[in-house]
């Protein structure tokens, strides 16, 4: 198992290099000179050169990339151009908020999605199935920001149950988690339902039925266990998607986090911050995939035996 994890980790290294190169390059395609953000018009050439040197902007691109990558690996993400602080500090400040929101949303959509998926699978093609699948479809088709605004209108403005924005206390987490989570629920419910139905048609289930085990035990302990494998995989693959969903939601709820930091930095052409946020999101996506692989291996006996 350990060797498997290690191999998977090694396989991530070229992917990481490729991602970091893309992240580095894309941002240099953006029009506009970051030096202009730092000095006023008419500043002397000397001041300009000094700032270019400080941010490494005067060197050729490949060198800039290597310097940047070397620094990144050492945990030095550069200095924010607009914020004039260590980017690592900005990211460190934003990350917990995003992890909190992303984690809670993931948990919420997993639990709700799996529960709904099970119910839908058990009542396949009857009205609860239709209702649940219809409901989650509608939930997944609403733009995240719009759902967020509607939730604000109802639960924060009309009912006054939760704060409108910000990140002060757990109550301010409820509406953002609902917004991000509801969007993800649809996918989880859909996958759970199909996986349950498919797993339920396997031979071993017939065998268990023949043995006379109660239906609920078969479904919850045996079928569900098999059905969860694709669900976990999908969840892990879509961690980036959950984080992406948080981008808009963080903006709507004026919540600090990687998403709102990224949006602001993009608008301000603050390269180091944009790069750091994208890199963090990319790493999260990669780690999610890795986690999915490992969980899948742990849960799937076939993969497990193949490893031994």
């Amino acid at each position: 198992m350990l060797a498997f994890t290690f191999r998977r980790l090694l396989a991530l290294i070229p992917v990481f290099l490729a991602v970091s190169l893309i992240i580095f390059l894309i941002l240099h395609l953006i029009p506009g000179d970051p030096v202009d953000n730092l000095i006023k018009i008419g500043a002397s050439a000397g001041q300009r050169a000094e700032i270019e040197a400080r941010y490494g902007l005067d060197r050729p691109l490949p060198v800039q990339y290597l310097v940047w990558l070397g620094n990144v690996l050492q945990g030095d993400l550069g200095t924010a151009i607009v914020g004039r602080r260590a980017v690592s500090a900005i990211v460190a400040q934003a990350l917990p908020y995003s992890l909190m929101l992303g984690g809670c949303a993931l948990l919420f959509s997993s639990i709700l999605g799996i529960a709904l998926g099970i119910v839908a699978a058990l009542k396949r093609d009857r009205w609860p199935d239709q209702a649940i699948m219809g409901g989650v479809l509608i939930g997944s088709t609403m733009p995240g920001f719009w759902l967020g605004l509607m939730l604000i209108l109802v639960f924060a403005v009309w009912l006054g149950w939760f704060p409108v924005s910000g990140a002060r206390g757990w109550t301010s987490l409820v509406l953002p988690v609902l917004t991000v989570g509801l969007g993800g629920t649809a996918l989880v419910a859909r996958v759970t339902r199909i996986a349950m139905i498919e797993a339920g048609q396997r031979d071993f289930v017939l065998l268990l039925h023949a043995k006379g085990l109660p239906v609920w035990r078969i479904q919850l302990f045996h079928v569900l266990r098999h059905a969860l494998i694709p669900v976990v995989t999908i969840l892990a693959l879509r961690i980036g998607w959950i984080l992406g969903g948080s981008v808009t939601v963080e903006v709507v709820f004026a919540r600090p986090g990687l998403g709102s930091t990224l949006i602001k930095a993009l608008a301000q052409h603050d390269y180091p911050v944009v790069q750091a946020c994208l890199l963090m999101l990319a790493v999260a996506v990669m780690l999610g995939t890795l986690l999915g692989d490992i969980l899948q291996a742990v849960m799937d006996p076939r993969v497990r035996t193949a490893l031994q």
Partner: peptide, 18 residues
């Protein structure tokens, strides 16, 4: 001193006691 870029959000925060 909170910074809220959208006037409507700021107003709603005031209205709801945030």
């Amino acid at each position: 001193f909170r910074e809220i870029p959208e006037d409507s959000t700021a107003f709603l925060e005031l209205k709801t006691g945030g």
